[in-house]
Design a protein around this nucleic acid. Sequence first.
DNA 1: GCCCAAGAGG
DNA 2: CCTCTTGGGC
Lengths: 263, 263
Amino acid sequence: MISIATWNINSVRLRADQVERFLTQEAPDVLCLQEIKTAESLFPHDVFERLGYTHRAVHGQKGYHGVATVSRIPFREIGRHDWQDNGEARHVGVELIGPGQGLILENVYIPAGGDIPDRTVNAKFGQKLDFLERMTRWADKLDKPTLIVGDFNIAPLESDVYDHKALLKVVSHTPLEVETLQRFADAHGWVDLGRKHIPAPERNYSWWSYRSYWRQKDQGRRLDHMWASPDVAAQSLSHRFVEETRRWDQPSDHVPLVTELSL
Amino acid sequence: MISIATWNINSVRLRADQVERFLTQEAPDVLCLQEIKTAESLFPHDVFERLGYTHRAVHGQKGYHGVATVSRIPFREIGRHDWQDNGEARHVGVELIGPGQGLILENVYIPAGGDIPDRTVNAKFGQKLDFLERMTRWADKLDKPTLIVGDFNIAPLESDVYDHKALLKVVSHTPLEVETLQRFADAHGWVDLGRKHIPAPERNYSWWSYRSYWRQKDQGRRLDHMWASPDVAAQSLSHRFVEETRRWDQPSDHVPLVTELSL
DNA sequence: GCCCAAGAGG
DNA sequence: CCTCTTGGGC
């Protein structure tokens, strides 16, 4: 059995102590981080090394984006896609060696998409859709047991947001985004582990805005996901959201997700 | 007997808790702050109010400089000099009412003066000397019992720095600054309480640079001062530097000075 | 709101 | 090294 976690940490340097606390408490075998917001040279390798996460694939970028996969079990890095060829660090892929042998683990940070859900006036929204379309063409060719995790920046189901109707016009929950994400899902037959283990319409959020006081009112959205190839999904034992991190000092706006696979 | 303190706090909002700790521990009747680095509207009035410092004269400025005098005993504000008429908040004066009746308390933050001690290539150095010259003309006319305190940004004596010879060419200890400060002293006959109570060449520092690791090597300078009119100096009972604050978390680069007067 | 980067000022 | 501002991003 191996356990895998994903967490948009919103600056790994600022929250190195929180990552340490999480790893100490939950002890996942692998942790996928997004928005590390640092160049690889300033990544806090020592923290992970000390805790036994001696295998690391860090695709960093100064100030923005950036993803990292750290692991107690060996892996080999299989690539860093830059689907839009714009230099943004939004993906790193690894293949597990030893325990979980052969599992492909794709760590991705999909663009947020700006404020206005209209690609003619908001280039960032167009970039988000284009990113998903390029990922879809890529996923169509995947033929190995794969788990893709990360911050997708889309809450696809009605029960993935605190107010479905109100958010239909808000970037992250628009029909256009949801349809585009669905085409990505269909391209590989991805199984949404979050909803496999916590079926809709059960409350199931991973993100709360820093703006306003929504935190207190529980106005969250499920933007972070773990999706598995059908064969991998069949081996998934559990899935949970570690909401406790929201109560820590100066938390990330995202909480971690953890899943267990019988590999 | 009244006690008066001065402290360059280097952001009163960031260190409101440290100011509270200092006031709780030392309980001076009056505290003069420099480099509060905030507009008056964002000054943490509540902290002082709660501790009984209900009389406050805050001469704030957004982001830079700024001075404030807070007191448990009543005073009336007598003015805010802008000697160079450049809008910088570097002075506030008050006159005590009740205990210490009639004492004038001038709180001042003299410009640092930049890096190069040459007014032809460094306008900031010229501004510092000009500021002192304008203060000198002002001091020449003072005729009331006065205590002037604050960050003078000059260490006048050899024993006011960790290495006199090395610092002769460093802004804060150059002969030109020391002579200019001496003319200010002579203009009113100010008595340096720091050296009245802790005579040279005893070690007597109020500031340690954040840059480099001088803190550990005790490479300090005496940049903060409390100077009294001769009549007030005759009533000065004690004077000390509260170096303990340097060991607090994220300390200011300056430590507080406290003096007691038999008024 | 919170995070990053630059640049100024100390 | 530390703090502030502005401006971008989410």
